[in-house]
């Protein structure tokens, strides 16, 4: 079993990370569209999306059965399924794989929930190292402002309500996101994530992203498919 490290598959793996409201999904969607337009075989894979464990995760969340440990392991199961059945075969086939959230999300969230940082890192050691991992850095209050205007109500685990930080979901969410951000700041240097200033205009961030991605795709010209 190979450990977290550079893969030798012909495909490329780009991932986005950041707290809720950092704009990472918007940026990834724009990148996706652009890559497809450029003729690259591009596939998108989202965190927590494996059909295999979906019912189990749903059940655990709905009935609030999850502890920090089972929360961590059920998400790792989901990720393992996507790695084995989706991400690795696609990289072998030469695709450009885009992931909205990757193992660093688990490193941040699970550790905030009290899991041992080394244990979580080892748990995910079967993961493929991304070609580039973008971290969208944003001040907490800016992210929270963006979210306030958009959504109505946060979910139990999303707000970190299981940690009993506050009886009020909104307050709990803010404290939880703040702690996740602190963990991300440790992860960025440790795993050499590429930080993007998420307060810049969307198109400026996107052009930075495209430049970095393009440099990595230069060697992968042969992967182009007819648009």
């Amino acid at each position: 079993m190979k450990r977290y490290g550079d893969h030798r598959f012909p495909g490329k793996l780009f991932v986005v990370e950041g707290i809720d409201g950092s704009g990472k999904s918007t940026q990834l969607a724009l990148l996706h569209q652009w890559l497809q337009g450029e003729g690259y075989g591009t596939v998108f894979s989202e965190w927590n999306s494996s059909l295999l464990v979906r019912d189990t995760t749903k059940r655990g969340k709905k009935r609030r059965m999850l502890t920090p440990a089972s929360f961590s392991l059920i998400h790792a199961t989901d990720f393992a399924d996507r790695i084995e059945h989706n991400i690795i075969p696609l990289l072998k086939a030469g695709a450009v794989v885009l992931c909205d959230r990757y193992i660093y999300t688990a490193f941040a969230r699970d550790v905030v929930r009290g899991m041992d940082p080394q244990w979580v890192r080892e748990l995910y050691s079967f993961a493929v190292k991304p070609t580039v991992a973008f971290y969208f850095r944003i001040p907490l209050d800016v992210a929270l402002n963006r979210l306030r205007s958009g959504r109505n109500g946060v979910k139990f685990y999303e707000a970190g309500m299981d940690l009993e930080l506050s009886a009020n979901p909104e307050d709990s969410f803010e404290i939880f996101q703040g702690r996740i951000m602190e963990e991300y700041e440790k992860i960025v240097p440790e795993f050499e994530l590429t930080a993007v200033d998420a307060t810049l205009p969307i198109e400026v961030q996107q052009s930075q992203m495209r430049q970095i991605v393009l440099a990595k795709l230069a060697q992968a010209k042969r992967l182009r498919v007819a648009p």
Partner: peptide, 28 residues
């Protein structure tokens, strides 16, 4: 387990579990 027992059984019926996925599912 109340949480994952049913899910594992269902997944095994389909014979589509990867070996790592199976391991982590059992750990859950």
């Amino acid at each position: 387990s109340d949480l994952a027992g049913k899910g594992i059984k269902q997944a095994k019926e389909g014979h589509i579990l990867g070996r790592l996925t199976l391991s982590v599912f059992y750990a859950t």
